[in-house]
Amino acid sequence: MSMKYIDEYRDAELAKRISAEVARLSEGRQLKLMEVCGGHTHTIYKHGIEDVLPLNIDLVHGPGCPVCVLPMGRIDDALAIARMENVIFTTFGDMMRVPGSRGSLLDAKAEGADVRFVYSPLDAYKLARQYPEKEVVFFAIGFETTAPSTAVTLLRAKTEGIKNFSVFCNHVTIIPAIKAILDSPDLRLDGFVGPGHVSMVIGMRPYTFIAQQHHKPVVIAGFEPLDIIQSVYMIAKQIYEGRSEIENQYTRVVRPEGNVKALEAMARTMELRPYFEWRGLGFITHSALKLRPEFAEWDAELRYDVPGVRVADPKACQCGEVLKGVIKPWECKVFGTACTPETPIGTCMVSPEGACAAYFNYGRFSMASERSRLRMASTSQANG
């Protein structure tokens, strides 16, 4: 597709034509495809893409929401820092309401802690320059998409010698999470709609193992409705032709080599942790980043005494299963009742990228259930 204007990416007639091609290519097959990125999940449910695609295409949601995958213990560590005297604790807005075992950052703010939401680490850095008598901490979260902005801010802090600024680093990396999904015994996948924003930084090469070792196609996708529908078509075409390759639908943004300068900034400031706990996936080796020893003066984990305790998720919450794609959000026992965006029990209901929030905000829970019933009926007819 060669398009220039936003409405062209939302052409309903073109979407139907591509979907008809998907139906032709996948006839007689039940295909389960995982969209890794939470941004894709929201596009799918905001624009009703599941209802355009044929019933034999089942889209499941992966661990691509950085807010959702943070374990409760790391939230408790953030709360411990935020409640310290003389600290201005800064964070992205969607972290404010994520529940820890002792409340959320919004609760801490209501209790008197100086917690502020910012749009970037540079905003936090500016606060450090504005209030030299305060300790300003930035709660760094996100995949490789947001890590470069943290890296650039750290380089600036070191160059300018700003010592009252530090980073509580919780950046995670996408490839180990996908490996954990592929190694999971309770999930069978036929292909991946690859994350667009992460791939803008890391490029295409890191996904090669998915095609070569696991024989699953990956198509890196943009975030408009037709981006996702075309990506599903490209996956279905690969499967129809017996191929497993890494393809790039999002060519207007993603380059095969990624963003070399962003990767260099990350390499100068951060290194892989030996292991890191993910909500729902447990401990995964080399799956997260920490600051390099050269940046120890700006490392909040070294500067402050944090609990560092592993905290179990609430028993009622099934965020882990949702993040692994094992269940859909509406299948969770507390979805839409005890757990809503206003009263979240789990992280998937908090973040704008969370799958549960996507289902809830776009009113998809009843329709998802009906679609699942139709899909099962269609499968039994095909098998019968």
Rank of each mutant, 00 (worst) to 15 (best):
M3W: 12
Y9C: 13
D11G: 08
R24A: 12
R24N: 06
E27F: 15
Q30R: 15
L31I: 04
M34Y: 09
V36A: 02
V36T: 08
H42R: 13
I44P: 02
G48P: 00
L53Q: 04
L55S: 07
N56V: 12
D58H: 15
H61D: 06
C65H: 09
V67H: 02
C68H: 00
M72Q: 14
G73I: 07
R74G: 00
A78E: 09
A82I: 09
R83L: 04
E85F: 08
E85C: 05
N86G: 13
F89S: 10
D94G: 04
S104V: 01
A108G: 08
A108T: 10
A108R: 10
K109V: 01
A110P: 01
A113P: 01
R116I: 11
Y119F: 14
L122W: 11
F138N: 07
A147H: 04
K163N: 10
F168Q: 07
I175L: 10
I178S: 02
K179Y: 01
I181M: 00
S184R: 10
I210P: 00
A211Q: 05
H214Q: 03
H215C: 01
P217S: 03
P217W: 02
V218F: 09
V218G: 02
V219K: 10
G222S: 06
F223M: 00
E224R: 14
P225F: 06
I228Y: 06
Q230I: 15
I239R: 06
E241K: 13
G258Q: 02
G258P: 07
V260D: 13
A262Y: 04
A267V: 07
R268N: 12
T269R: 03
F276L: 02
E277D: 04
L289Q: 00
C317V: 08
K324A: 06
G325A: 01
V334C: 10
T337N: 15
T337C: 13
C348L: 01
M349Q: 11
V350W: 06
S351F: 02
F360K: 09
N361W: 08
Y362N: 12
R375M: 08
